[in-house]
């Protein structure tokens, strides 16, 4: 058909996504071609119908309020609260003068540790903490194929106290990664693996022992991958699992 080449571009034309010059040529064609003009009209009607049908769901006022409160700074603080905050700010400033030399490097790093802690807690709080449920590393590892842009090795656990519960996909700073859950004496431990180069630059040391976290954590980099092991198990257990993972990688 003469119009085949035009009709192949019809949607792009109606989306306004062809260059201006071609747009003018196309306009002229559509005006003079009954077949294309009818086709264009019905597709425009279809677009409008989808637009109307697509605006289907409206959030409740209560939900909007909840989100609004979470993003809006609270300016209705009482004088007392303001005074307390001012005092706290002064204290922070005083403490800051003693620790300022360390703060620059630590702030970004602490944010990552904080996010890792959040991922660990949120996952364990979930009703379905893992998406692949298996104690077999040969089942869990292949499950990540095609979901994350790297591969990693999992340790053999036969003669250890640890057992693998499963895994799920996760994101840190918009970077996809693997989240594995291990069990030791009823304590759940998260192992998170990401590509080192995708993470914030502040994690440049090979091995860190984060302090002041509500959980025990170990992290290191190996073969371009950054590993985090975190949980409420003892520091010795966290260290043992980290050693097994290091040996496997």
């Amino acid at each position: 058909m003469v119009c085949d080449s035009w009709q192949g571009m019809l949607d792009t034309y109606l989306d306004g996504e062809i260059p201006d010059e071609e747009m003018r040529t196309y306009d002229a064609h559509v005006r003079n071609c009954p077949s294309c003009s009818v086709d264009a009209l019905t597709r425009v009607q279809m677009k409008r119908a989808i637009q109307l049908a697509g605006k289907r769901f409206t959030p409740t006022a209560e939900f909007r309020k909840r989100i609004q409160q979470s993003v809006v700074p609270n300016r209705q603080r009482s004088f007392r609260l303001g005074w307390m905050l001012a005092t706290a700010a002064v204290l922070i400033l005083v403490v800051g003068t003693f620790t300022s030399s360390h703060m620059g490097n630590r702030s970004g790093r602490d944010q990552v540790f904080s996010e890792i802690t959040d991922l660990h807690v949120a996952t364990l709080a979930s009703s379905s903490p893992v998406d692949v449920i298996s104690t077999d590393r040969h089942t869990v590892k292949p499950w990540f194929q095609g979901k994350i842009p790297f591969s990693f090795n999992l340790p053999e656990l036969q003669n250890s106290e640890f057992s693998l519960l499963g895994g799920r996909m996760t994101y840190l700073d918009q970077t996809p990664g693997a989240h594995l859950i291990y069990d030791v004496r009823k304590h759940h431990i998260s192992v998170l693996v990401f590509q080192e180069r995708s993470l914030p630059a502040s994690l440049d040391e090979n091995s860190l022992s984060p302090k002041n976290l509500p959980f025990n954590m170990e992290t290191w980099t190996e073969g371009g991958l950054r590993y985090f092991v975190i949980g409420d198990a003892s520091a010795a257990d966290i260290n043992s699992l980290a050693k097994l993972l290091r040996a496997a990688s």
């Binding site: 009607q45 279809m46 119908a49």
Partner: peptide, 16 residues
């Protein structure tokens, strides 16, 4: 490849 438009716009027409 690019989709060739249907000649009889039955679904669209029906919808409209």
């Amino acid at each position: 490849g690019p989709e060739i438009a249907v000649e009889q716009d039955t679904p669209d027409t029906l919808l409209c």
